[in-house]
Design a protein around this nucleic acid. Structure first.
Length: 595
RNA sequence: GGGGUGGUAGUUAAGCCUGGUAAUAACGCUGGCCUGUCAAGCCAGAGGGCGCGGGUUCAAAUCCCGUCCACCCCGCCA
C-alpha cells in the first residue's frame, strides 16, 4: 500500500476530455474492471462521475506496469499519466470518455479490496438482503449513485425555491410529545425524568402552526418524520417530508406555490414541462369515478354507479347489496370479451384481498350478453347497464355490489389491474391532480367514533360549521392532496386558528376537555394570543424521488433504508442494550414467553 | 395479527412436483498463457452439502411440522 503523498486530483474521471490531449493528469478512483493482456493492461477507473480507461504499457512505463499486475477489482488507486487519443478503431462508443485514454506513468495503490459479494454494476439481480447488508457497495453502483445524487439536486432546488419565495427553514424538535390520533409513536425514554417518554415527531405539524402564531409568516423544512407502523414498498419508519406553512393563505396560494415548485423540479430534473394549473377534482368526484381519493388519471376505465338501475333486481348479490345500504358499481373493459375464464377468475381472486365477495363478469358478444348472470338481469336492467357503461360488442362489463367502502376499494383495484393487464398506463406521463374537499371526519367502525380524515387541526369549511355536531359525516374540510399518477405525494389544509372551533372539533372527535388540555393545551393557549389564519402542506420527498427515479420501492431513493421488519441489516439495528443502559433509563425488559 | 413468494458454491439460478448412492450451470474467485481489450480471450483449478431445528423413511436439497430471514400484499399508516 502506498500513500497519496503530494498528489492532487486533476479532475473526475469523466471530466477528462479532448481538450486535455497531451496533458498530464492525476486521477483517483476504483478499479472497475481489469483486463490483462500479458503485455498491455487496461483498467476502467471509476469514480462518482463514471469511467475512463487507463493503460499500463510495459514499454511506456515498466514499473507502473509491473505494479498494475497485482491490481484487482475495487482496489483504490491513483494514477499519474498522459491523456492520449485512442486509435480510430479502438474507440469505445459505449463510454462518454471512449475516445481517449490515460497512459499511466506512475501508479499508487491506495487500498486493496476483498472480492466483492456482488458486482458493482447496474442491472444486477441480487437479493435485497445482501444489498442492504453491504449497502455501501450497493451505493457504489452507478444507478444508485444517480438516484442519491438526483435526490440532492431536488432537495437543493426545493430549498432555493422556498428561499426565493420568502420562506424560512426553521428546525423543530425531534424529541417531543406523544399525541393521540394518528400513527403509533416512536418513544424515547427520558433518563432525567423517570417513567416519562419523549415521542419522535410523526410530522412537525403543531410546531409549524406555532411558528405561524409566532409571526414567521412563511416556514418550510426538509425534515425527517417517524411513524411506528408496518412497512410497505412505499413506506419506511423514518421518511422525509417537505413541510410548508404560511399565514393568511387561500388554498389557491398553496396550489400555486406547490405547482410552480413541482413544475420547476420536473423541468430541471426531467427536462419536462408540466402544464399548470394542475387539474382539480373534489373528493366526492374522485370516489365516484375512481373509487379512491388518489385517482390515476392517465387512463380511463371510469367507474359508473349503477345502483339506480337495479332497485328491484332479481340478481341476489345486487339485491342483497342494495338492501344492506350498499352500492353497485361497474366498469367497462373495452375489447376484453376474449379474456378467458381464467383471466377473470384471477382478477376476482385478487380482489378478495380487498374484501370483495365476488365480481360479476358479463361479456358483450355478437349474440348478446354472455356469462352466467346475464340471465338473472331483466331486459331493462341489461339495456340501462349497457347504456350507462357505454359498452360495445367485444367489451366486457365488470360489476360489483357491496358496502360502499368495499365496492369502491375493490373496483379501484380492479381498474388498476385491468389497466396494467391491458397496458393502458402510458409511460413517461405525469398527471398531477389536486383532490379537494375531503370529508373532515370518517366513522371508524373499529373504534366506534369519528376520526379525522386528515388531522384534528384541519379547518372545516366555514359553511359546514353548523353541521359539526349534528352531521359530522357531511362536513367537508378545507383540505387538499396532491396526487401524481395515482400516488399521494402530499397533502395539506387550511388549519383551525380559533380556540373555540378547535375545541368543538376535539369534542366531536371524542377528545375530552381534560384530555385536550393535557395533550394540546399549548396549542389552544397559543390560539388565544392572536393566531393568524394559516395553512400549509407537506410533500413526501421519498415518494416523489421514487417517481422521478422510476423505481419500484422508495428504498432505492434512500441511502440507508430499513427492511420490512424495520431493521437495518448493515449496522444491525435495532439491537439489545446493556443492563446499565436500561437501569439509567429506569426501564425493565419483560421477557415474552418464547415457548 | 393474517395471506403469498423466495432461501441450493461468493453471486444468480437449475434440481424439489414424481426421495436413491461423487448436487448442475453461468458469472465471480485463484493460478498460468497472451501487447489493444473494453461482457477481453484461451487453459487449469478451488469452492457448497442445499437457511435453521425436528420428524417420516432403508434412504431427504427433494415429503411433513415448526422456526428464522428477505420481499409483495391485507390489517395498520391522523
Amino acid at each position: 500500500m502506498e500513500e497519496l503523498g503530494s498528489w492532487k486530483r486533476t479532475c473526475y474521471c469523466t471530466e477528462v476530455g479532448k481538450q486535455d490531449l497531451g496533458k498530464e493528469v492525476y486521477l483517483m478512483g476504483w478499479v472497475n474492471s481489469y483486463r490483462d493482456h500479458g503485455g498491455v493492461i487496461f483498467i476502467d477507473l471509476r469514480d462518482r462521475t463514471g469511467l475512463i480507461q487507463v493503460v499500463f504499457n510495459p514499454v511506456f512505463a515498466g514499473t507502473a506496469h509491473d505494479k498494475a499486475n497485482m491490481l484487482r477489482n475495487e482496489w483504490v488507486i491513483a494514477v499519474q499519466g498522459e491523456v492520449r487519443a485512442r486509435p480510430q478503431d479502438m474507440i469505445n462508443t459505449k463510454l462518454p470518455t471512449g475516445g481517449i485514454e490515460v497512459w499511466v506513468k506512475e501508479l499508487r495503490i491506495l487500498n486493496r479490496s476483498l472480492a466483492v459479494p456482488f458486482a458493482i454494476e447496474d442491472e444486477i439481480k441480487i437479493n435485497e438482503e445482501l444489498r442492504l447488508t453491504y449497502r455501501y457497495l450497493d451505493l457504489r453502483r452507478p444507478e444508485m449513485q444517480k438516484k442519491i445524487i438526483t435526490r440532492h439536486r431536488v432537495v437543493k432546488l426545493i430549498r432555493d425555491y422556498f428561499d426565493q419565495h420568502g420562506f424560512y427553514e426553521i428546525e423543530t424538535p425531534f424529541l417531543t410529545k406523544s399525541t393521540p390520533e394518528g400513527a403509533r409513536d416512536y418513544l424515547v425514554p427520558s433518563r432525567l425524568n423517570p417513567g416519562k417518554f419523549y415521542a419522535l415527531p410523526q410530522s412537525p405539524q403543531l410546531f409549524k402552526q406555532l411558528l405561524m402564531v409566532a409571526g414567521y409568516d412563511r416556514y418550510f423544512q426538509v425534515v425527517r418524520c417517524m411513524r411506528d407502523e408496518d412497512l410497505r414498498a412505499d413506506r419506511q419508519p423514518e421518511f422525509t417530508q417537505l413541510d410548508v406553512e404560511m399565514s393568511f393563505p387561500r388554498p389557491e396560494d398553496i396550489y400555486e406555490l406547490m405547482e410552480e415548485m413541482l413544475a420547476k423540479v420536473w423541468k430541471e430534473i426531467m427536462g419536462l414541462e408540466i402544464p399548470r394549473p394542475f387539474p382539480k377534482m373534489t373528493w366526492d368526484e374522485a370516489m365516484d369515478k375512481y373509487g379512491c381519493d388518489r385517482p390515476d388519471t392517465r387512463y380511463g376505465l371510469l367507474l359508473k354507479n349503477l345502483s339506480d338501475i337495479f332497485p328491484n333486481t332479481e340478481y341476489r348479490f345486487f339485491k342483497q347489496a342494495i338492501s344492506e345500504g350498499g352500492i353497485i358499481k361497474g366498469l367497462n373493459a373495452p375489447g376484453c370479451a376474449s379474456w378467458s375464464r381464467k383471466d377473470t377468475d384471477d382478477l376476482t381472486y385478487a380482489l378478495k384481498a380487498y374484501g370483495a365477495k365476488g365480481l360479476t363478469v358479463i361479456r358483450y358478444q355478437e349474440e348478446g350478453l354472455a356469462g352466467p348472470v346475464a340471465k338473472y338481469l331483466n331486459a331493462d336492467e341489461q339495456k340501462l347497464m349497457i347504456e350507462r357503461l357505454d359498452a360495445k360488442v367485444g367489451d366486457v362489463m365488470m360489476l360489483m355490489g357491496d358496502k360502499v367502502s368495499v365496492t369502491n376499494e375493490a373496483m379501484n383495484q380492479l381498474r388498476q389491474m385491468i389497466a396494467k393487464k391491458m397496458k393502458l398506463v402510458p409511460e413517461n406521463k405525469f398527471n398531477f391532480l389536486w383532490v379537494t374537499d375531503f370529508p373532515l371526519v370518517e366513522w371508524s367502525e373499529t373504534d366506534k367514533r369519528w376520526k379525522s380524515t386528515h388531522h384534528p387541526f384541519t379547518s372545516p369549511r366555514p359553511e359546514d360549521l353548523e353541521k359539526l355536531e349534528s352531521e359530522p359525516g357531511s362536513v367537508k374540510a378545507v383540505a387538499y392532496d396532491v396526487v401524481l399518477n395515482g400516488v399521494e405525494i402530499g397533502g395539506g389544509s387550511i388549519r383551525i386558528h380559533r380556540p373555540e372551533i378547535q375545541e368543538r372539533v376535539f369534542h366531536m372527535l371524542g377528545i375530552s376537555d381534560e384530555e385536550a388540555k393535557i395533550k394540546f393545551g399549548f396549542l389552544l393557549d397559543a390560539f388565544r394570543f392572536g393566531a393568524p389564519p394559516h395553512g400549509g402542506i407537506a410533500l413526501g420527498i421519498d415518494r416523489l424521488m421514487q417517481i422521478l427515479a422510476g423505481g419500484n420501492s422508495i428504498r432505492d431513493c434512500i441511502a440507508f433504508p430499513k427492511t420490512q421488519a424495520g431493521s437495518d441489516l448493515m449496522v444491525n439495528a435495532p439491537n439489545e442494550v446493556s443492563e446499565d443502559q436500561l437501569k439509567e433509563l429506569h426501564l425493565k425488559i419483560i421477557k415474552e414467553d418464547l415457548s
